[in-house]
Design a protein around this nucleic acid. Sequence first.
DNA 1: GGTTGCATGTAAATGGTTACATGATTGT
DNA 2: ACAATCATGTAACCATTTACATGCAACC
Lengths: 197, 197
Amino acid sequence: MYEAVCPMDVKTLCLGVLSRGEATGYEIKKQCEEGPFAFFYAAGFGSIYPALNALKHDNLISVEEVIQDGKPAKKVYSVTADGIHAFLGALERPPAPDRLRSDFLFMMFFGQLLPARDVANLIAQRLDILLRRLGEMEECHNPDMTGGEAFSLGYGMAIYKAATDYLDSHQQELVGVALRNEVPGIASAPSTEKVKV
Amino acid sequence: MYEAVCPMDVKTLCLGVLSRGEATGYEIKKQCEEGPFAFFYAAGFGSIYPALNALKHDNLISVEEVIQDGKPAKKVYSVTADGIHAFLGALERPPAPDRLRSDFLFMMFFGQLLPARDVANLIAQRLDILLRRLGEMEECHNPDMTGGEAFSLGYGMAIYKAATDYLDSHQQELVGVALRNEVPGIASAPSTEKVKV
DNA sequence: GGTTGCATGTAAATGGTTACATGATTGT
DNA sequence: ACAATCATGTAACCATTTACATGCAACC
């Protein structure tokens, strides 16, 4: 039986996505990695498909199988009246605290133990990711969005913007520290080695 | 056998914490919830104690049992030379992408489905948490920190600052939308009901 | 000929959380 | 009397990830 836990688990996520319009499991995943949920939720096929089956079993969603030519058959899911009700119930529960797990920050925390070049590379990569995501989010922004959608997108963009600004303005400090920590002579030697980025 | 996965799992976290100085499992957990790791890592006793036992088994850390009076005996762990080596190895692996899971943003995304008062409460609570954490982080900041520590703390503060600014300046928009979505008459009626905050 | 995109799914393994069990001391 | 702090640990449970399995079409 459906019982929203957090309120946010994969089932609730699916219910939420479907409340905006019918979709297949494949499309739900795409929305989690490129679409509007990418910033605050991740889910793979291994959790989405079983979640959809469980929701179907509880009659919170309905399925329609669509045969396509040139492409594999797909299962288009829609939320039922019961499903909407369950989703609204889940939204009323108090939210669990946010949790972030960042390998990047963990590594930066121990930045002075790393070669300066690695630190510089990690920050450069991070800036790259952040900037690309910011671009994707900007594209994502359209006037048809609901207030909530625009709000959470704006929140994500504000965070990413702050992160890029911070990295831009503070990267030299950390790279400098790491450089000073290196064995003198190595740090100043011109590098012929290529670093994987 | 120890084999850093992400590089960041609870074992690597423990190794990292201990590389800064000896600590007990209890103290490691405190550092994860109040200390410098709180922003980007969470871990409970149920994962820390088994991780410490596994690290001990691999001789990456050593234990000293300290009997205290008035308090239960504690096990103080220190990292060994092998442990330092293993930790440095873990830091060299490429970082896994950050992952955030935010019930709050999920709920805001569907904000127009919620009563305006709930939206306003959720945002107020969030601001409260953010501000409190910002205060804790400011206190945490001291001149003895390594470059990496100051960098990641600064990063966290920049993010939280951006989040509070965004919430401050955009909360009215979302609450307004939610209000307009409510049944006319209810929205404007003065409320006698107390809302749990 | 290999990779990417579309499309669904299962099974095993992982990693972590939650709840429980214990117990002394200090503070309200 | 009750809750919180200090302190460790186990066991059951859980959610999710990863790897596998299948298959066709389009593109490079």
